[in-house]
Simulated assay, not measured.
Amino acid sequence: MRDTPLTAWQGMDLLVLRGDEELDRVPSTDIDRVILAYHRGGETPGDLAYAVLLTAGEALLFAPATGIAGRVHFERQSFWSDRPCVYWVPAARAPLPRPMRGGWSLFPRRLPAYLRVPRSEVESDIARWPIEGPQSWEQRKWERIVRSRLLPPAEPAGKR
């Protein structure tokens, strides 16, 4: 059996699974905000450091190995586009709140693959993160393309 939990969609619920066992279920209507912490430029799902999903009462931490990047980036794109709740933050500027780091140790521990904690325990830490968005991955990609263009934006036809 695989130790790392995986995410999957079932209907409009996001499931957290370990093998065939359902560990958790999050109705999509309960998701207030998705915060994607990224390394490098955040241009690919491989740049994901971790994701935090906020519901009304809880914060859920997902490591990249759970497949959450694909669930947010590529699956249900119209859902994420219709609900402007995906935000971005550079991982270097978004240290995980103490309750989300898992276990006590003098040495850095591995990121927990999946963790659910009360939102009230992490809200003040998350409020200090320099969050960008809301912006879906697709919107973010197109903004990057526009910024990288060599030519200045074209003037509207009536302004010539």
Rank of each mutant, 00 (worst) to 15 (best):
Q139A: 13
H39M: 13
I35F: 13
G103N: 10
Q135C: 15
P84G: 15
T66A: 09
G133L: 07
R128D: 09
F107C: 02
Y38N: 02
R119T: 04
E21W: 01
P156V: 10
Q10V: 14
P90G: 11
L23D: 12
G41S: 12
R140M: 06
T55L: 08
G57R: 07
G41L: 01
H39Q: 12
T66M: 05
R98D: 14
E143L: 03
G102V: 09
L6T: 13
S124C: 05
L48M: 08
L60V: 09
M100C: 15
S28A: 15
V52K: 02
E123F: 09
V16M: 08
S81G: 08
T55A: 07
D20E: 13
T4N: 00
H73W: 12
A69Y: 07
A157T: 04
R128T: 15
A37H: 09
A49Y: 01
F74G: 05
S120A: 14
S28L: 15
R2N: 06
S124T: 15
R119S: 06
I31R: 01
P108H: 14
S148T: 06
E143C: 07
A157V: 12
P153Q: 00
A59Q: 12
P90Y: 04
G103W: 03
E138L: 15
W9P: 03
P130E: 11
A154V: 05
A8Y: 02
D30M: 11
R149F: 02
R149D: 01
I35E: 03
D32P: 01
Y38T: 08
Q135K: 06
A51W: 03
E123D: 11
R116L: 14
V72W: 09
R140P: 05
L60A: 06
V122M: 07
A59K: 11
A127D: 13
L6G: 01
Y50W: 14
A94D: 13
P5H: 09
A51C: 11
P130C: 03
R98Q: 13
I131H: 01
S81R: 15
S120I: 14
E21Y: 08
G102R: 12
